[in-house]
C-alpha cells in the first residue's frame, strides 16, 4: 500500500494555523509574565517569609510538581465553571498554566536565592540598604541571572505544554488543528506540520529568552560567563 502524502491540503489552512500560532504565543507570553511574578513572589516567601507562609508555598509547589498539568487544567477550569463562574476560556487556561509554571519557577528561583552568599546580605546591610532594596538589588537580581538558563528551558517546555489546554477547548495551535483534521482527514500530515511549527516556535522562544537575557543582564553580555 502506498500512501499519497498531501501536505498542500493542510497548508491551505495557513490562516487558521497562523491564528493558532498567535494564540499559543500570546498564551505563552502571559503565562511567562504572570508565572515569573508568581514564582518570584513565592520564592521570596519560601526563603524569607514566616513559617506558616513557607509551609503553604511548599505545599503548593509539591502538589503542582507531583500531579499532571492535564489534571490541574481539568480541576481548575472545570472546577471554576462548576461554581457558576463564567470565564473566557483563554483566561481560564492562562490561570491554569500560570498556577502550574509558578510552582516550577518558585523552585528554580529559590535555588538561585539560596545560592547567594550570606556575605552579600551583610555587605548590603552595612551599606544601609533596606530589606526591600537588598532583596531587589542584591538577592533577586543576581539569583535570576544565575538561574536564567534553567528558567528559559522551563518556559520553552511551558510553550510546548500549552498544547494541553486544547483539551479544555482552547483554540491554540494544537486545538485549532482539530478543525483542519475534521475537514481534511489528513491526520498524519497535520501532525507533521504541527511538529515542524512547534520546533520552530521552540527555537523562537529560546531565542527570545536569550535576547531578553542579554538585555537584562549586562554582566553576561560583556563577559559571556555564567555568574
Amino acid at each position: 500500500m502506498t500512501y499519497n502524502f498531501d501536505f498542500a491540503a493542510v497548508l491551505a489552512y495557513w490562516p487558521l494555523l497562523l491564528e493558532g500560532i498567535w494564540t499559543t504565543l500570546r498564551l505563552t507570553l502571559f503565562c511567562t509574565v504572570f508565572g515569573i511574578l508568581l514564582g518570584g513572589a513565592c520564592a521570596v516567601v519560601r526563603t524569607g517569609g514566616p513559617t506558616w507562609a513557607r509551609w503553604i508555598v511548599s505545599l503548593y509547589v509539591e502538589f503542582i510538581r507531583n500531579t499532571p498539568l492535564l489534571v490541574q487544567c481539568y480541576f481548575l477550569i472545570f472546577g471554576i465553571a462548576s461554581m457558576g463562574i463564567r470565564l473566557p476560556i483563554l483566561v481560564g487556561a492562562t490561570i491554569a498554566l500560570t498556577v502550574n509554571i509558578g510552582a516550577y519557577t518558585t523552585e528554580i528561583v529559590r535555588a538561585g536565592i539560596e545560592s547567594i552568599h550570606r556575605g552579600q546580605l551583610e555587605a548590603a546591610t552595612c551599606l544601609g540598604l533596606s530589606r526591600t532594596q537588598t532583596y531587589l538589588h542584591v538577592i533577586i537580581r543576581p539569583a535570576l541571572e544565575r538561574v536564567y538558563p534553567a528558567l528559559s528551558s522551563q518556559y520553552v517546555l511551558l510553550m510546548l505544554a500549552s498544547s494541553i489546554v486544547s483539551s479544555v477547548g482552547v483554540e491554540e495551535l494544537f486545538g485549532i488543528s482539530n478543525r483542519i483534521q475534521s475537514e481534511t482527514y489528513r491526520n498524519f500530515e497535520i501532525f507533521v506540520v504541527l511538529g515542524g511549527i512547534y520546533l520552530g516556535l521552540a527555537i523562537l522562544v529560546r531565542g527570545g529568552f536569550a535576547l531578553l537575557g542579554l538585555a537584562m543582564f549586562p554582566r553576561r553580555r560583556k563577559l559571556g560567563t555564567p555568574l
Binding site: M1, L160, S163, I164, S166, F188, F191, L194, Y198
Partner: peptide
C-alpha cells in the same frame, strides 16, 4: 525536546498505518 508530547502521540498513532 522541541516537540509537544501531544504531537508525538499523534505521529505515533497515525504514522504506522501510513507505512502500511
Amino acid at each position: 525536546q522541541g516537540l509537544p508530547l501531544l504531537v508525538l502521540m499523534g505521529l505515533c498513532f497515525y504514522g504506522p498505518s501510513i507505512l502500511g
